[in-house]
Every structure is written in structure tokens, then in C-alpha cells.
């Protein structure tokens, strides 16, 4: 039996793995297994195949149209080694988007697997459900929701440009941590075009039940989008001051 550390009360102040106890120099069995489980969940989040069909069906049930696309990375191992391929559409997908009628829209919507299919499976649909009322209230026109496999954030630039969108929102699985395997990231880019830099985007990260809630994230995104349209830009020059619009810590009914 290994003794537990007598300062376990401190553990309530941090999600870090403190006061684990020890047996000699080493971790107790239970802690080794807990760590293994957390790593297994994170690995599975990266490698579980993205269920684009089920995600698309759930998105359509919300009342959106959908389009399925794939990046130029043919498989997961290539995707991990070649981030450049994950940033561009496959030839078929490019042709599919290019063949659409060129009516402009305010916002192109992209749901992308990124580095955590688990995050997209868990967060994308409830987040879109929370965003939908803001889109309706502001009267923004949107593209069909583009469901993208083996995709990086910058894939949205090509999608947004082909769909003639004023801005693109990429909802993507973030690199999983041991304590956050299913965290969704939101990337908003004004005037999307191939070759945009990360400094031209606004990012909202850690969207999940234990982090930023779907409702809070949807309000932040709507605030940023309205400011982006007002000022004609996103990125480092657009600071997120949406917190100042909160009423008693909650999103207001309308955007300022």
C-alpha cells in the first residue's frame, strides 16, 4: 500500500495532478492507470474516424443544408505529417464548391474534424444550435454547412472564397489535452482567401461543457462577427470585448 500525500486538500485549487502519493520513487498503481485512461481518450479523440454522415444528418436536423468535402490529405497519417495538405481542398471537393451558384453570403460555415473528431461529435451540433438564433436575429445569410474531413483551420479560407462569403467560421476539433480531449475551437476569418495568415483570424477556444459553454461561445462569436462586418476585418486588430456587453454575466438578448 502506498501512502497518500497529506496535502490533498490543495488539489481543489488546480486541475493539475498534485498530491498523487508514491510508492518508493514511483506512482501508485491507481494513478498510473488513471493517466493511461486519460491518454487513451486523447489518442482516441485524434484517431477515431470522423463520422461525417451522422454529423451532417444532425446538422440538417437543425434546419441547415450541408455539403461534404475532404481536404487533399487522403488519410489520417498523411494528415498528421502534412499540414499543408489539410489546408487545401481535394480536387473533387474544389470542383463541387466551384460548381455552386455564386450568390454571395454573409457567412460560410465549416465543421471540420481537425485533431479531435471527439470534439466535433460532441460539440459542433449543440454549438450550431446555440448560434442559429443569433444568425436569425441579425438576418445574416449563410452557406450550407460544409462538413470537412482531414481538415486544418486554413481549409476554411478556400471554402469561404469559393462560396463567395464575406466571412468564414471554422468549427474544428482542437489538439486534445489529457484533461480536455473533446474541446472545440472556433476560427473566424473576414474576407477569406487562400494564404490568409493566422494573425488575420479571431479564435475562441475550449468550447465544451467544462470550458466555455455553447451559449457563451455562440454569443462571443456573434459579437465578433458583427464587429468584423462593422469594421471590415478580423484578427489581431479586432479585440474581443464581448464581455463588456454581458448583463449580470449573461449574454444580452440582442447584440449591441
Amino acid at each position: 500500500m502506498s501512502p497518500r500525500d497529506p496535502w490533498q486538500g490543495l488539489a481543489r485549487h488546480t486541475p493539475a495532478r498534485i498530491a498523487l502519493g508514491r510508492t518508493g520513487a514511483s506512482l501508485p498503481t491507481a494513478e498510473v492507470l488513471k493517466f493511461s485512461l486519460a491518454h487513451a481518450l486523447a489518442r482516441d479523440a485524434v484517431h477515431t474516424p470522423f463520422d461525417a454522415a451522422a454529423t451532417g444528418a444532425a446538422v440538417r436536423a437543425l434546419g441547415f443544408d450541408t455539403l461534404d468535402v475532404a481536404s487533399a490529405a487522403p488519410a489520417r497519417d498523411t494528415y498528421l505529417r502534412r499540414p499543408d495538405l489539410g489546408r487545401r481542398l481535394s480536387q473533387d471537393s474544389r470542383a463541387l464548391l466551384a460548381a455552386r451558384p455564386p450568390e454571395p453570403v454573409d457567412l460560410a460555415l465549416v465543421v471540420a474534424d481537425g485533431l479531435s473528431s471527439a470534439a466535433v461529435h460532441a460539440q459542433a451540433v449543440p454549438f450550431l444550435a446555440a448560434l442559429k438564433p443569433w444568425i436569425a436575429r441579425e438576418g445574416w445569410t449563410t452557406s450550407p454547412v460544409v462538413v470537412a474531413r482531414e481538415a486544418r483551420v486554413a481549409l476554411g479560407d478556400e471554402v469561404g472564397a469559393l462560396l463567395n462569403a464575406r466571412a468564414v467560421l471554422v468549427m474544428i476539433g482542437e489538439r486534445p489535452g489529457l484533461s480536455s480531449p473533446d474541446s472545440l475551437g472556433l476560427y473566424l476569418t473576414f474576407a477569406p482567401k487562400v494564404g490568409a495568415s493566422d494573425a488575420q483570424r479571431n479564435c475562441i477556444s475550449n468550447v465544451r461543457a467544462e470550458g466555455l459553454s455553447h451559449e457563451a461561445a455562440a454569443f462571443k462569436l456573434a459579437w465578433l462577427l458583427k464587429e468584423a462586418f462593422r469594421r471590415g476585418l478580423t484578427g489581431v486588430e479586432l479585440k474581443d470585448e464581448s464581455d463588456e456587453a454581458l448583463v449580470d454575466g449573461r449574454p444580452p438578448l440582442r447584440l449591441p
Binding site: 520513487a25 489535452g177 489529457l178
Partner: peptide, 25 residues
Amino acid sequence: GIPGADDVMLNYQSTSFHDALYVRE
């Protein structure tokens, strides 16, 4: 030396206080 080898800010795994004890042993 990171508690339990799990950096909860940077989201990666490194070496732990226990790992340091192991090397000393």
C-alpha cells in the same frame, strides 16, 4: 518536473516529480 507529467496549461505531457525521483534512484 510537472505534477503527474500532465501540463494542464500547455496541454502536453512532459516528465513528472516522480520521474525525477526514478532517475535519482
